[in-house]
């Protein structure tokens, strides 16, 4: 039975893939599209670059995307946690910060990231306000990614913290733990484990959104692909950039799915920590 099911699913997958390939191959202008998006020569030039023609290596430019999201992910984790913590704090003296944190998440989850990028990347240096206005374009780009994604991640953290049963807090209090201790030792460990899959989802988005930093003149993979397109009238660079992003995001998505599945098994088995 299992064998038959495997054979059936393999055959049906093969047929569907063949149909899709056939459709694109036989499209009236298919050859033209293949020339523009899947040109082998252009593929190679895009990957390696050609300084004599002012063409950049997309692989080298992709390094910018990689280090940028690695740095930003760490900062987003820290900053987002701070925001969520503030928002859930019950201390009266922190009330203004609680409100500020709520407004912050509302605002930055609501503005398209490219607009924040413009405002930060051109607005902050444009103010000529000393040190803060003299940073590099990459700094402003990272700041934008951290500002926006912290808002998303703060909400993920908050959901996680809220998912910890209130009895846990009561128990911690009865043991004589302070508010900070309760947060650190009781709520956070449980909350974070609950929200790892949605956190990783946000990081996949963050990886992709590093492709927007070209707006500030930074030569990332996407900008290099665009440059090739503008010079050579060929869009194969976009395919190269897309494949590089996939090489990065697919392992991450697979890992996230694996974690989700593992978490589900754990819960179904009775939810022992």
């Amino acid at each position: 039975m299992g064998r038959r099911a495997a054979v059936a699913s393999t055959i049906s997958s093969a047929i569907i893939v063949a149909l899709i390939v056939w459709f694109f191959w036989r499209a009236p202008n298919g050859a033209n599209v293949r020339f523009f998006f899947l040109n082998p020569h252009a593929f190679w030039v895009n990957l390696t670059g050609d300084p004599s023609r002012s063409l950049y290596s997309i692989l080298r430019c992709f390094e910018t995307n990689v280090w940028m999201f690695m740095l930003c992910e760490v900062l987003v984790l820290i900053f987002g946690l701070g925001l969520a913590w503030l928002r859930l704090s019950r201390t009266p003296i922190l009330a203004p910060l609680r409100v500020a944190s709520a407004i912050y998440t509302d605002v930055f989850r609501g503005i398209p990231i490219i607009l924040v990028l413009f405002a930060v990347g051109y607005g902050v240096p444009g103010m000529h306000a000393g040190w803060i206005s003299q940073r590099t374009a990459t700094t402003y780009a990272c700041a934008t990614l951290v500002i926006t994604y912290s808002a998303y991640v703060a909400e993920v953290y908050r959901a996680g913290m809220n998912s910890v049963p209130h009895g846990q807090v009561m128990a911690a209090k009865s043991l004589g733990l302070s508010d900070v201790q309760t947060m650190r030792r009781v709520i956070l460990p449980q909350a974070v484990r609950n929200v790892i899959p949605p956190l990783l989802n946000d990081f996949i988005s963050l990886q992709k959104d590093t492709a927007l930093v070209g707006t500030l003149g930074i030569l990332d993979a996407n900008q290099a692909a665009q440059l090739y397109g503008a010079k050579e009238f060929n869009f194969t660079g976009y395919t190269v950039a897309a494949l590089l992003f996939l090489a990065l995001t697919i392992p991450m998505t697979r890992y996230t799915d694996h974690l989700i599945a593992k978490d589900r098994r754990r819960r179904l088995a009775g939810g022992a920590a």
């Binding site: 051109y122 444009g126 500030l216 003149g217 665009q226």
Partner: peptide, 21 residues
């Protein structure tokens, strides 16, 4: 130093005015 490459000339001008280039 690495050249800054913008999608439009207006963006390049904004970067010039902002002192980015």
């Amino acid at each position: 130093k690495q050249v800054h490459v913008y999608n439009t000339l207006d963006e390049a001008v904004a970067a010039l005015t902002a002192g980015q280039v």
